[in-house]
Amino acid sequence: MKTLLVLVLCSLALAVHCVTDERANPVGDHPAEDDLFVEKEQASTVVRQKRAAAELTLTQLESLSEVCETNLACDEMMDTNGIIAAYTAYYGPIPY
């Protein structure tokens, strides 16, 4: 009986919320639609840009090579294709 009472009260509260929210924002009036698209310059300041391999410091490259050296296949690929290609192939994207 208590469960039924709680369910009825929750559904009543949800119905009241939906009705009052619909009155506050009619279906045809959505001010947020204007903010859906932004200019490229504004988006580039918000979205983090990926770093190129040339921007990694020597310390970061050494850290990647130490991780890659623990895996024999990654170590061999590092010797032939480079540290960036080997690390990415075996461990995914570079974390920094």
Rank of each mutant, 00 (worst) to 15 (best):
M1D: 04
K2Y: 03
T3V: 08
L4R: 01
L5E: 04
L5S: 03
V6L: 11
V6M: 01
V6N: 00
L7F: 06
V8L: 07
C10W: 07
C10F: 14
S11P: 00
S11H: 05
L12F: 01
L12P: 00
A13F: 12
L14H: 01
A15Y: 14
V16D: 03
V16Q: 10
H17I: 01
H17C: 08
H17M: 09
C18I: 02
V19M: 06
V19D: 04
T20G: 03
D21A: 14
D21L: 15
D21C: 03
E22D: 13
E22K: 04
R23P: 00
R23S: 08
A24P: 00
N25Q: 13
P26L: 13
P26C: 08
V27G: 10
G28M: 04
G28D: 13
G28E: 12
D29F: 14
H30W: 10
H30M: 01
H30P: 00
H30D: 14
P31C: 02
P31K: 09
A32K: 08
A32L: 15
A32E: 12
E33Y: 15
E33F: 14
D34R: 11
D34I: 14
D34A: 15
D34H: 14
D35I: 13
D35L: 13
L36D: 03
L36T: 10
F37C: 04
E39R: 10
K40I: 11
E41N: 12
E41D: 11
Q42H: 07
Q42I: 08
Q42F: 02
S44H: 12
T45I: 05
V47A: 01
V47S: 02
V47R: 05
R48Q: 06
R48W: 12
R48L: 15
R48C: 09
R48E: 13
Q49N: 06
Q49C: 13
R51M: 11
R51F: 13
A52T: 13
A52Y: 13
A53I: 04
A53Q: 12
A54W: 07
A54F: 10
A54P: 00
E55P: 01
E55N: 05
E55I: 03
L56M: 12
L56Y: 15
L56H: 10
T57F: 13
T57P: 12
L58V: 06
T59Q: 12
Q60H: 07
L61K: 15
L61V: 11
L61I: 11
E62W: 04
E62C: 07
S63H: 09
S63I: 06
S63E: 14
S65W: 07
E66R: 15
V67E: 15
E69H: 06
E69V: 02
T70W: 01
T70Q: 15
N71E: 11
L72I: 09
A73I: 03
C74K: 07
C74M: 08
D75E: 06
E76V: 11
M77V: 05
M77Y: 02
M78T: 07
D79A: 15
T80H: 09
N81H: 12
N81A: 15
G82W: 05
I83P: 01
I84G: 09
I84Q: 14
I84R: 09
A85E: 14
A85Y: 02
A86K: 02
A86I: 03
A86P: 05
A86Q: 05
Y87L: 04
T88E: 10
A89S: 15
A89G: 00
A89P: 00
A89K: 03
Y90M: 08
Y91W: 10
P93S: 15
P93K: 09
I94Q: 01
P95Q: 09
P95R: 11
Y96G: 09
